[in-house]
Design a protein around this nucleic acid. Structure first.
Lengths: 356, 356
DNA sequence: TCAAAAGTGTTATCCTTACACCCATGT
DNA sequence: ACATGGGTGTAAGGATAACACTTTTGA
């Protein structure tokens, strides 16, 4: 009641272009002048928006001139700029002075929106489609385990875990050892106790995108943690042992990377029990295109024959009768999504590799 | 920016008592004086609450004197009292006059909280534990298909569908025929065209609690639709053909029943891939207790032996060595939850009957 | 001794996984 | 002809679902 409350509607607008997962970004600026990509957003205006989702559609569609198809609410974050209030020093004075900032509170509602492959960056505007693995390079396992994990992330996180192995996060109710093992699929009961042993990933769960990002944020491994004032740039108290100087993935505005992590996690999970991939594909597509889209989103490669058999058995598609007349080899048959599966089966989706 | 915005934090606090799913309610009053049960809630106060979840915990714990264990955010609804603004007439003037109501906008964030079986209703307070199937009698299939479906709900909804079969809901993107068939698992391609044919349920998906409730709301079958001003009490335009006079399930305050529907749906889904049941059980329990809890929540009965085999194979529990010494027949062995499964398997849960 | 609830064995069937192999086109 | 990508067959092993059956207690 006392302070003003503003509800921001943020969209992770996702598309796929032959092996590249794309997210729509718009350049933004931090109070200190730093420029970073952000997600399109706008405030919820209860007087004009009948529902939150309608408000979001309206903002994004006017900003981007895109027609959004599938839209889904992800999560509502109340700790926008979560640690800034603990930061004593003031940034350079500009637009939003710190006095107005302390009275204005932000809550952000994140959305996932899927659109079909765009032709190009809309040249006349500031919008840019970016490969989402630029922001999360450790999430792309299509060509095996990314080197950045063994080289930088795992050692750094192991150090952070060792520093206070049993410290429990109040919100998660787990200690650092458990959280690290869960998020990154590292095994070994004595993992935390054996010093100098390099953690090994034994079962990567591609859906835990958010948990991994949050852990890295708390460990001070991503630029947002420094910007938010959680970690001091040079040498303050909660800094982990081996902070890498190289930034881990490109940073985004405020908590936008967290929203994007939530979007990727949700999409990777939803793939498996709802036919959402087809929102990203053209009306007619080949099975290889379908497989490649799934691989692109989930960040993993899957077995070709088994994938096809699964698609067939799930009754998700039907042949159009036409064939593709290019791509080097034998022409591929075109298929289309069978919309009626949703009425025939309870949870139709592409159940790639249930467990490891 | 112009109007005041208030963010309400609402909790569906759930427990299970030997075959009865319980939700914590608190009596509330509508502007017109009607008394209805509601969910515990309080406004988000950014100045004192560091995160939304911490705000929720604080409100609920002070209101109920319960210690919340597992807490999970469900959804954020922006159309609280969704159709009231379209209602021209004013209700009886009291506390919140209609003028202040038009300037104050509400957004509600729903949460699911799980607690262990309570001993009793806290006698000194107004809080009451209620069987959640009082609010959703059509959701309890443990003893077969509830009669209320064939007797009242399906005929009424069939009428609503027939009235405008192809009208599409803008937010869902589906027409009435498709939405009805999806939510209630009714089959038959010509379902909507054949008049006087009674719809039959062929594949009930216990997770679609929210879709079913929303459909019934839109069709004017639940009291909240009338309260919200969507359906006029006597005979106005959008009223369906065979509106039942008997109310379908007990009504709740404002949109609280929608939040509860979301909570049930989420819990029924989550059971299958996260070990959340154990948050509702005592430390030591028998396999029959475990099975009964799952059946209570999912509203379906499951095959005893296959359930046990699944529990065993999933490595979810371990024997305590003790046995129960009562309950009529042979004593049952006690088990406890093996917390470490969460580190061994990607998505440990009780995968009851995936498809029908 | 009987009811009641706990707990076990066994089968046919389906699905998954991982092989190796053939087909149609462009160059 | 051969490289390239499209598309298929088959068999071993594991998971499922539905049977009927035995065991241990209290009354």
């Amino acid at each position: 009641m006392p302070d003003a409350l503003s509800l921001g509607l943020h969209a992770a607008v996702v598309a796929v272009d032959t092996g590249t997962p794309l997210v729509l970004t718009v350049p933004g600026q931090l109070p200190d002048g730093t420029v970073r990509p952000g997600l399109p957003f706008g405030p919820f205006q209860p007087a004009t928006h009948r529902t939150l989702e309608m408000g979001l559609r309206q903002w994004v569609e006017t900003q981007t001139e895109l027609q959004l198809g599938y839209v889904e609410q992800l999560y509502t974050f109340g700790d926008f700029g979560r640690f800034r209030q603990a930061e004593p020093k003031k940034q350079t004075a500009d637009g939003a002075g710190s006095s107005s900032l302390s009275a204005q509170h932000f809550v952000s509602v994140g959305y996932l929106a899927l659109v079909r492959t765009p032709s190009d960056d809309p040249a006349q505007s500031v919008l840019r489609w970016k490969n989402w693995y630029q922001f999360f390079p450790w999430e792309d396992w299509r060509n095996g385990q990314p080197a950045i994990l063994d080289d930088i992330i795992l050692p750094a996180l192991a150090g952070w875990v060792q520093a206070q192995p049993d410290k429990v996060s109040s919100s998660k109710g787990l200690n650092r050892v458990a959280r690290f093992r869960l998020a990154f699929g590292c095994d070994g009961p004595g993992m935390a106790s054996e010093k100098n042993r390099m953690p090994t990933i034994t079962s990567w769960d591609e859906e835990r995108v958010l948990e991994r990002y949050e852990l890295m944020y708390e460990a001070g491994l991503v630029a947002e943690a420094i910007t938010d004032g959680r970690i001091m740039p040079s040498n303050s108290s909660p800094q982990p042992s081996s902070t890498p100087q190289a930034p881990l993935g490109e940073a985004m505005l405020y908590d936008h990377r967290r929203i994007l992590a939530t979007a990727i996690a949700r999409l990777r999970g939803k793939l498996k029990y709802r036919p959402v991939v087809f929102e990203l594909l053209p009306d007619a597509f080949t099975l290889t295109q379908l497989q490649q889209t799934v691989e692109t989103l989930s960040g993993r490669s899957v077995h070709k024959q088994n994938f096809r058999r699964m698609v067939e058995k799930a009754n998700l598609v039907e042949p159009t009768g036409t064939t593709a007349s290019e791509t080097g080899g034998r022409p591929a048959a075109y298929f289309r999504f069978r919309r009626s599966v949703t009425l025939e089966r309870p949870r139709p989706g592409l159940r790639i590799a249930p467990r490891v």
